[in-house]
Design a protein around this nucleic acid. Structure first.
Lengths: 174, 174
DNA sequence: ACCTGAACACCGTTCAAGT
DNA sequence: ACCTGAACACCGTTCAAGT
């Protein structure tokens, strides 16, 4: 809050005319990070979505912690995670769709949070850097693929979207 | 720090005679939480280990965040996660064993962190409680089982370890 | 050996008062 | 409508000085 105020050339208290609390501000920040990312987040392929979310978060310090907080504070406000739920739970009971999405979500955010917290410790010279960027990506992908393998597989789309095998039913009750 | 000092009937600064930093203290706290838990953590069955870790963390406020921090700050110091690596990676290349364990670890810590952060927000009356304890456990289990299904299965101890079906590929370059 | 006192450089938030 | 000034109740950390 105080840093932000300084950057706006304003007293800390002034922020509270525009925002009710730091937490409310973070909701806005989280939405901005995910919606206005240079790399858009896929809404078709869960593997790609996971990679895209990581790519959107990595360059922004502590963003994974922010997103995790917002997901706990205001579930369902962050579209990409909501989208994941529809993607993975295409023909699953609603509750299992939610569980499936949360499984992948927790992994993605947990993984990136660890990367970023480690980066923060390195920046502060508390630990020394032993990170290989390419290896991190490989490790991330390994987990994503393992999880998707374990979850009930969604529509194997390919060109088979010609015949509507999926009942695409039940738009979730608002 | 200040809370702890107060509880010890001592000035805040006095703590720094015994501990180098808050972070060092947290390493000790994390070890204590996992080692001296009333419910011991299984070292045989990964599913049970995950459930045990959650059981050990749930009653201690913010413990999942503490453990996550310590895992980033000092990887490999927390035994149960190290044990998970050996359990899951019994006949896997070292790097994949690590990745497998981290996949499950991120899920477990991410899940419990969300539960605890939500509990904290409820305690502070910032959000209202809509949590069903039994449902949470079911959701947790769902994710654990999905992930273990997706990961290369460890020794199915019974009789199937007779034929070495896994090609145990090219040990990765260090 | 262990602690106090006091300071340093921080937090998020509130609120009367100014313009 | 938007901000200042000043305070409130907090942080982790350091360090001379006490016992």
């Amino acid at each position: 809050m105080r840093h932000l105020a300084q950057r706006l050339g304003v007293q800390p208290g002034a922020l509270y005319y525009h925002v009710a609390s730091k937490q409310d501000l973070l909701v806005g920040v989280a939405e901005h990070i995910l919606n206005d990312s240079p790399t858009a987040i896929s809404a078709n392929d869960p593997t790609q979505a996971a990679l895209d979310i990581r790519a959107a978060l990595l360059p922004i310090r502590d963003s994974a912690d922010v997103i995790s907080f917002v997901n706990a504070f205001r579930p369902d406000t962050l579209i990409p995670f909501h989208a994941l739920e529809q993607l993975l739970g295409a023909q699953l009971p609603a509750q299992q769709a939610r569980w499936a999405a949360q499984t992948l979500t927790h992994y993605v955010l947990g993984f990136v949070a660890q990367e970023q917290n480690q980066a923060e410790l390195i920046r502060a010279r508390i630990i020394t850097d032993t990170t290989d960027c390419a290896a991190s990506e490989e490790a991330f992908r390994y987990g994503v693929e393992a999880i998707l393998r374990g979850l009930p597989s969604p529509v194997q789309d390919s060109e088979s979207s010609l015949f509507p095998s999926t009942p695409t039913r039940s738009r979730p009750a608002e």
